[in-house]
Write a protein that binds this DNA or RNA. Structure first.
Length: 324
DNA sequence: CGTGTTTGACCCGCGC
DNA sequence: GCGCGGGTCAAACACG
């Protein structure tokens, strides 16, 4: 697949978070002129729970409800109810991670207005074929390569005789200076690759929980370097570590809930004006490991006060918006 | 020492 | 068959 845009073959949802100043700039300068938002677009507060359920291992019904909730068609030829903001190449906002692999050419690919919004199920023709490739690899193992028997045995035992189902995927776009957005789960990075036509590498993460095969890819949009594209693959087979402590309030106010709800909220351009993007809050350390360290080292405590405040502001706003 | 990251090598599918 | 690009593996390394 030559397409390096995950939104062309994954279940995709556009999210944008911005700080107030930047959204004003966007709207004043670009958004309204070059891209349209569906005026009838509705954003029920159930987004919050729906997305969380998806991330916590919900059924495909959740995917459907998500897609419908976001006004997306289930077929691939999306009518693009929501269009992403225009690409703004911001070269001073490049990430600093090392790139071992040089990218041959960084030429700009013409942006189609719907390029980031189209969605498809995994059964669509445009999906990845990585699972079939794995199966084939395992078949080759059966042929008897003595070299890597030990590591191949486990794979064989895992997949032999059954065709592994393709994992459902969905992707988020988030305006953030942080690449790896905290979602409440613990992830282990297992790879990084240069992306064709993009100066930004793609990172591969796997859920650290045993028996959980959920993966996620994180990459920065080459069209707008301030946008982080996170693609989840699979569904967690365990509870979110951030919500495991049995404290409903803590769970509600956990960074995981905060971030996902923030992303959902920020899908609507009008809401973008209401909230700070947590990740561009100058009071927050711009540090990938901030939330990870927080969860690992201070799991008994709630988020900092400003996070409480932000989240409560958002919830209050949501309630206000949906009151008759 | 346990956990997570980095990074070169490798595999696979696909197009030519 | 060959090269390319995406995805994964695993040894080496970093860090608390």
């Amino acid at each position: 697949m030559s397409d390096n845009n995950p939104f062309h073959h994954d279940y995709a949802f556009p999210f944008f978070g911005e700080n107030p100043s930047s959204i004003y700039d966007h709207q004043a300068n670009n958004t309204q002129n070059h891209h349209h938002y569906n005026q009838d677009f509705d954003y029920p507060s159930s987004y919050m729970s729906t997305l969380t359920e998806c991330l916590h291992g919900g059924s495909m019904d959740h995917y459907n409800s998500l897609s419908s909730a976001f006004g997306m068609n289930n077929n691939c030829s999306s009518s693009s109810e929501v269009v992403c903001p225009p690409p703004q190449i911001d070269h001073h906002n490049h990430q600093e991670s090392s790139r071992k692999n040089s990218v041959d050419d960084h030429h700009q690919i013409p942006l189609t207005p719907n390029s980031l919004i189209s969605s498809s199920s995994n059964s669509e023709a445009g999906c990845h074929e990585e699972d079939s490739s794995k199966i084939k690899k395992d078949d080759q193992c059966e042929d008897g390569d003595d070299d890597d028997k030990s590591k191949q045995v486990s794979k064989l035992a895992k997949k032999k005789g059954e065709k592994k189902q393709k994992e459902p995927r969905f992707a988020f776009m988030t305006k953030s200076e942080i690449d790896n957005l905290e979602d409440g789960y613990r992830w282990r990075k297992y790879g990084q690759k240069a992306v064709k036509n993009s100066p930004f590498p793609r990172s591969y993460y796997r859920c650290t929980s045993q028996k959980c095969s959920v993966k996620k890819r994180v990459e920065r949009s080459y069209e707008d370097p301030s946008i982080v594209i996170t693609t989840y693959e699979g569904q967690h087979s365990h509870h979110c570590p951030a919500t495991l402590r049995g404290n409903a309030a803590a769970a509600l106010l956990s960074p995981a809930s905060f971030l996902s709800s923030q992303q959902q909220l920020l899908i609507h351009p009008h809401d973008q004006q209401l909230f700070y993007n947590n990740n561009t809050n100058p009071n927050l350390p711009i540090n990938n490991s901030f939330y990870n360290n927080y969860h690992q080292q201070q799991p008994q405590l709630g988020p900092p006060d400003y996070q409480y405040g932000l989240f409560q502001d958002m919830v209050a706003s949501l309630i206000h918006k949906h009151e008759p």
